[in-house]
Design a protein around this nucleic acid. Structure first.
Lengths: 202, 202, 202, 202
DNA sequence: CATGAATGAGTATTCATTCAT
DNA sequence: TATGAATGAATACTCATTCAT
């Protein structure tokens, strides 16, 4: 019985995070009201405050969960790959698959609302983002060193790739022509080989 | 005297747009209040309403101006270039230079707040964005047809490039290691030739 | 075991009264929340409601206990004194010693929050206060009649004394220069003999 | 016309202060809501915020005005009196007359709500209170030195007097038996000459 | 005896907007 | 063209209290 109670609580918490993520996604953090969220949950505004401390805490919890998700589903699975090309390809595809197939609202929230977070919360999320950027930079450096990649600036390459991938949520619709897997392949192809046929043309 | 009055009015309008763009940029559209804007302008809130009809109108005016700017500074200058590779290169570099050197707040607002616009305003801005996307797609199609580019999906290529470029405002700081021109060159290099040394490796 | 249970309950009740008195004292009745009290007690808000019926009841219970305390420690001990001057002196000193040495939060609550009580509760506390005022008036009347005191208005004298004494909680700090006993002596001296050297000077 | 506007504004400000003082007096600061005040003024809650910055600011403004009032009506008029006995008598009577005849709600608010103020506001009001206490202490010291008063502790005498006088708002009703002037005389009599007929009796 | 969850009413405050002047 | 005053609706959040477990 106690277990049930605890489980219910977890469920409520998760329900709130999920619903809030959806609504923050649709209306933006500032555009969404606690009333929107409580209404979507079918409880009162006051009821929500049994489970969270403030709207900003809620946002952080969502982002933190989104980070967990990303790290669990992507980062953790690719960090150990020793071959840098395999590592990069797995990262790129994994990242794209997560944002196109699972489409976790939490990650959209991270991408779109990160600047509303202040103070320690902001720092914590930013630190986790930077960790990912550094992982990408390291991978590009490995690729250049191993002679597989051209002499690209690792930082430039990292942000080029991040831009391509993080922008997906702005335009990609799963109902469209391309599946997530197809997009992943296509983006990997463009990013790795470039647009042009012959390097000499550049 | 009449001319002066009209000029002053134009000036006020421009002042308001510029100031509001800066503030929407800093705090987001929903996070910014008309009071923030009027305070930054040194006039009263009521005073602003002599020049604009509503906060949403103001946002639209900013975005519209941002679009004008982009089209004048980038699109118009490259649309006429007949060689598709030159056209693409000029577009890519022009676009990046605009967002790294001029850094117009209006364009950041377009990128970050477009989903708060509703109805006809939304459609109008979206139509202009789509026009740019179609222009890019046409360019990639031309490149493939002319045998200069590999067989890439034009839509995929367009959004890959847009992602890289539109994400820049999220991380690029002019005080950093790279100048706008250097970033433009580096991104063009990565995008056109890809990361890898040998196409066979992909 | 029953005895133990009852004792525990009494203990809990007393704990709640004491803690609530302290918190009402610090933050005022309206400024304090049931959450403040429950947190200070280490139980839940709901837990408190097993021992009290409402916040107002709790306030009344505190005041009532404060009154009990005062009547037990002061009034009861001096009412029987037949010599009016001894009676007055004992009352004055006893009252001051209670508020300076024991410093019961309950009495501060009575002095500071009495107007928030309504209805029957208010009447009950007010009645006990009036009883004390009438006791003082009677004592002054006795003093005048017996020729020991000058022809002072008993009501005026009673409220002059009450003001001096009831104001103490606003400024007196036990860490200061005067002990409670010293303050009691000093106040008694001032009140009984006045400020001036020679009555003629007044 | 501009003058009228400014005058109106002053009037509104004064209206708000006065009304809020009355309501804080009746219900206490925490017990009173901004809605109570706005309703009493016949404007909306939002309307009030054109004239004040916050509820706490409003409280400070009331207390500050109460202090102005007291200093103007009492302190300023008596500070210059060179004879200490005259000075004390004028202070005592002036103070009592102010709280019994004018009965400014602002002074009651100062006496009852001062502990809700925090930070700089609290310090400012406290400093003005201390200034009055020091003035009283100086006066008592002068009286003792000049041989007019008995050897009383100036601090004790000051707080004895303050208690008598500051407690008046708790019990005095102008509809009662005593006029303010009569109470002033009676309190002065009790305080200066004491209760007892013969000093030897103490 | 105690809890976690919930609620309805209420809190101070902010908002975009209007309007008489 | 600008202002000060005002408003109605909304904001995030808190409150005392209840109740099933």
């Amino acid at each position: 019985m106690k277990k049930r109670a605890r489980q219910d609580r977890v469920t409520r918490q998760a329900q709130i995070l999920e619903t809030a993520a959806r609504i923050f996604c649709d209306k933006g953090f500032e555009g969404a009201s606690m009333g929107d969220i409580s209404a979507a949950l079918g409880i009162t505004k006051a009821g929500i405050y049994h489970h969270i401390r403030s709207k900003e805490d809620l946002l952080y919890a969502i982002m933190s969960y989104g980070m967990d998700l990303f790290e669990r589903k992507v980062l953790r699975r690719v960090m150990g790959i020793s071959d840098p090309l395999e590592r990069l390809r797995a990262t790129l595809k994994g990242h794209i698959l997560v944002v196109t197939r699972d489409r976790p609202k939490e990650i959209t929230v991270i991408l779109h609302e990160s600047s509303v977070l202040k103070g320690r919360y902001r720092e914590k999320i930013d630190a986790r983002k930077r960790r990912y950027v550094r992982f990408l930079e390291r991978t590009f450096r490995d690729l250049v060193r191993s002679g597989v990649a051209r002499r690209v600036d690792p930082t430039v390459a990292a942000f080029a790739m991040l831009g391509m991938v993080n922008w997906i949520y702005q335009w990609y619709r799963p109902a469209g022509r391309l599946s997530g897997a197809e997009l992943a392949d296509a983006f990997a192809d463009v990013f790795l080989k470039g647009i042009l046929k012959s390097p000499a043309a550049g």
